[in-house]
Amino acid sequence: MGNVVQLEHVTKKFGKQLAVKDVSLTIEKGSTVAILGPNGAGKTTTISMMLGLLEPTEGVVKVFDKSPKETIVRDRIGAMLQEVSIIDMLKVREVIEMFRSYYTSPLQVEELISITGLKEDVLGKWANKLSGGQKRRVGFALALTGNPDLVFFDEPTAGLDITARRNFWEKVETLKSQGKTIIFTTHYLQEADDFSERIILFNNGEVIADGKTEEIKRNLATRSVSFLTDDKEVMALVQTFHTVIRCFEKDGRFYIVTSDTDAVLAQIFQQGIHAKDVAIEQGRLEEVFEHLTSNDQEVM
């Protein structure tokens, strides 16, 4: 089958806290998927379940049609996690050698160096005494050691400067061209936009948008109609309009995000809403993203 990852009605609770709510999705072979969302949205929890590190409270997670905990599956995946400190008393070269012994068909050290841009001199350093950038490169190399078909990057560029980020994504492009399936989480919308074919947007443990990056942009970055009004009841009324995606109030202005501004305008006038200073705006993706994922006075 073409599905590399499959989640069916997956829910994860930590005690009473609901971290992931009824998420279903499939990820196809060879695709590059960005999982986006603010802190605490459930991105890392979801990835951890895909990796078999966490057991879902309800639902089923399958990777290559099997449980992610199976050794055969582990042999085909690689991951870069947040904040892993490499064990002490070993050199980088030794850690890589150790990792190579775990997999059935690992990459050669030279291949890893060329793919990840790891410098020769770093190989001779103590693995637990590296700078942030070096550490990230080594993590990248370890993720690819087993020549995986599916690669996970959890916040791979957090804390890196622009050059290092661009470098990293250039390397990821190479992986993409080799037909690998890539799943990454990020805070940077731009990265998702530039490097993924598909965006899965998480908020409060739920998938609030999922689709091709282009589509998401079209759907989410829809236009909005905004106006000033004294009528407090407007919010509830406008919610019921056709084509309305959501409404919110910002700096006293009332915004209606919609896929069809004409239809919304028509309805406003039909309902005789006292709308002053009406404006139509082209929403930016960044802005939409912020609103979708922030917890301000937004009414949904």
């Binding site: 078999g52 582990r74 995946i77 996690l81 892993v84 400190s85 064990i87 775990y102 087993g146």
Partner: peptide, 18 residues
């Protein structure tokens, strides 16, 4: 304890090494 707190044990769980 070091390997546990540093996330290394978790990281190793991702490899096929049991």
């Amino acid at each position: 304890v070091q390997e546990q707190t540093g996330g290394w044990s978790t990281f190793l769980k991702l490899t096929p090494f049991p």
